[in-house]
């Protein structure tokens, strides 16, 4: 039994890997809902993001507590925790973007660009989930990391054009302008966080070698 225990992944390790996969799946679902929501201007789909974020939060808490209870070697734990916390920050920004979107009417001048960013964020989320699977299976992460970096660069370019455009849009009051600016900021910083999460995955992958 002792040998079986040390030769297997271990119950706690399995639990962490499964929960990280679940966390990433929830994130992809949230991205999908958000993207469809702003494409169709469907508030129920946008609200779904908030529910998914809450579910993601409980999964994150479970992952962190399992890691602190002794899953994996101590050396791996900090970077795994950082990766999971970065995913949580992505969820938080997506939730903020969803909340801000509910409070603002998205001007037509920037709608198309915002939908493009949301769609790219969705692709980045899927790529991140694929990267995690690749790491678990011992495959190369470089191509997936490169794809994420390319998406991030594209979103950065779109961000500047949105910011340029947004300055010419008239607003009725301060709060309308602020909410719109915050929505754009939340939507466009998600890609940076996904890039950070990919970096953590790469660090985790090479740190033990």
């Amino acid at each position: 039994m002792f040998l079986k225990k040390i030769l297997s992944y271990g119950k706690q390790e399995d639990q962490v890997i499964e929960n990280v996969k679940k966390h990433l799946q929830l994130l992809c679902l949230a991205f999908d809902s958000f993207c469809s929501g702003i494409k169709k201007n469907d508030s129920s789909m946008i609200r779904e993001v908030i529910d998914l974020e809450r579910e993601g939060d409980s999964v994150r808490r479970e992952i962190i507590s399992t890691i602190y209870a002794g899953a994996f070697l101590p050396y791996l734990r900090p970077d795994l925790c950082r990766f999971v916390e970065t995913l949580d920050r992505v969820f938080d920004s997506l939730e903020d973007a969803a909340l801000n979107y509910s409070d603002v009417v998205l001007p037509e001048q920037i709608r198309e660009e915002c939908v493009r960013v949301a769609s790219m964020n969705t692709n980045m989320g899927e790529m991140l989930a694929l990267s995690f699977d690749a790491m678990v299976n011992g495959e190369d992460l470089r191509e997936k990391a490169l794809a994420i970096r390319i998406y991030e660069k594209k979103i950065d370019d779109i961000k500047f054009s949105i910011l340029k455009e947004i300055r010419t849009i008239p607003v009725d009051n301060f709060w309308q302008g602020r909410t719109l600016a915050e929505f754009v900021s939340d939507l466009t910083t998600i890609s940076d966080m996904i890039e950070d999460a990919t970096d953590y995955l790469q660090i985790i992958n090479i740190s033990m070698r």
């Binding site: 040390i6 390790e13 070697l73 033990m208 070698r209």
Partner: peptide, 22 residues
């Protein structure tokens, strides 16, 4: 180890290292 173990998938390597460390 560099020529053998480091080629394994990360979590498999982690399990083997755990056995070796024990």
């Amino acid at each position: 180890m560099e020529r053998t173990l480091s080629r394994l998938p990360l979590f498999r390597l982690e399990v083997i290292l755990r056995i070796l460390l024990v």
